Amino acid sequence: MQPFRPYRSEQKFDCVKAVYGRQPQSQLRLEPSVSSPYSIDIAFIGHEETLVRVPGGSTYAKAIPAGTGAIHGAQQLEFVKVDSSSEFLELQPSLEVRETAANYFRAPSAVCFDNIQHVDDQVLWAVACRFRAHATGGWLLDELEAEELTRTLVGHMICTQLGGRRPRVNDAHLSDSRLAKLRDFVEASIKQPIPVKALADVTDRSLYHFIRTFTLTTGMRPHEFVRAIRMERAKEALLLGNRVKDVATAVGYVLGHSFYKAFYRHFGVYPSAFVNSLL
């Protein structure tokens, strides 16, 4: 494997802290990696032999296949020796996210997670790839999508690894009246950050029930629904001759480049090119 330059990114959202890193083997010899308590991580590069030290001094060797993850409880692990360069992503969900998921999926003790290794899970891999894209600047996350991804992952891990149980839900779809109420709420709050919990409250559903039923009903994730409304309002404002910078702020984007990327994903053209096409 070709060596690569070290890189580390820490991104704090309201509901999760995401740490992404690339470390050459030479750096790992000098600066051993340490897991964070109550976290979920994944190794994008596999290791045939890794030496791990646990609190108290005991050490053991293990292999880490590429694409596998781990769940960490209160106990921190120190990776004192690896056989190759490393690329990883670690997610540290907030206490509120862990408590909400543990209670909803009827596994109260899961709020503290547990030490589980070799988690080969496609949901974890997909969510980790999305956060990695954000960390490397390729496809930025907003607060709403980060929250949705984090809650989905934590709930999934609790159900598949930590003894949680999904409740039976008979009402699997949202009514037209609830969807209309939801759209009105987004329209009225379009300048502000809109957390998933606020959307769930509008429909009188629990967080996880809302995410599931919303997607079943509309075929969209909640963050995609909110982004679509923001983009439609942005287009209307541009058609009225407003400046791109002012439009971005008016539809809730603090960072201009985030607005540009969202607009391009929705319409296939950047805002400036869209404006020029009107001239």
Rank of each mutant, 00 (worst) to 15 (best):
Q2C: 03
R165M: 15
E10W: 11
Q25Y: 12
P65Q: 03
T59D: 09
G155L: 11
P37R: 02
F263G: 08
A70V: 03
N103H: 07
T100N: 06
F274R: 06
N276P: 01
A18P: 08
R130P: 01
E143Q: 14
A61R: 09
V16K: 06
A237R: 12
L141R: 11
P6E: 10
G155Q: 08
P271E: 05
F113Y: 04
V169Q: 08
S58I: 01
F4R: 15
V119H: 06
D121T: 02
I158H: 06
G56A: 10
L216I: 01
K261E: 12
Y264D: 13
C159K: 05
F4D: 07
G163F: 01
G164W: 01
L141C: 07
A74P: 01
V251L: 08
H223N: 07
V196C: 15
T213S: 15
A70P: 04
T100D: 11
P32R: 13
V154P: 08
L199D: 01
F274G: 05
G21T: 06
G21S: 13
V119A: 10
L174G: 02
T160C: 14
R212G: 07
E49D: 08
L91C: 06
S58Q: 07
V34E: 13
H156Y: 11
A273Y: 00
S39V: 03
S85V: 07
H134A: 10
S277M: 10
T136F: 13
E147N: 08
V196K: 04
D41M: 12
C159E: 08
E96D: 06
L95K: 08
H47V: 13
S258C: 11
L238M: 12
L89P: 02
V275T: 10
N170I: 02
M157K: 01
L95Y: 00
G268T: 05
R106F: 10
A102P: 12
I40P: 08
V123L: 14
K62H: 00
G73H: 01
L91D: 02
D14K: 13
S258F: 05
E224L: 09
S86C: 14
E224M: 09
F210I: 04
G137K: 10
D142I: 03
N115P: 01
Y260V: 14
F105L: 11
S26G: 10
E99V: 05
V19S: 09
I211A: 14
L51D: 09
H118M: 15
F214H: 13
D204L: 14
F274L: 12
L95G: 00
T136Y: 13
S189R: 09
Y260C: 11
E99L: 12
T100C: 11
F210R: 04
P193D: 04
D114G: 03
T217R: 13
V251G: 05
D176Q: 15
K181F: 04
S109P: 00
F88C: 07
A126Y: 01
Y104N: 12
A133P: 00
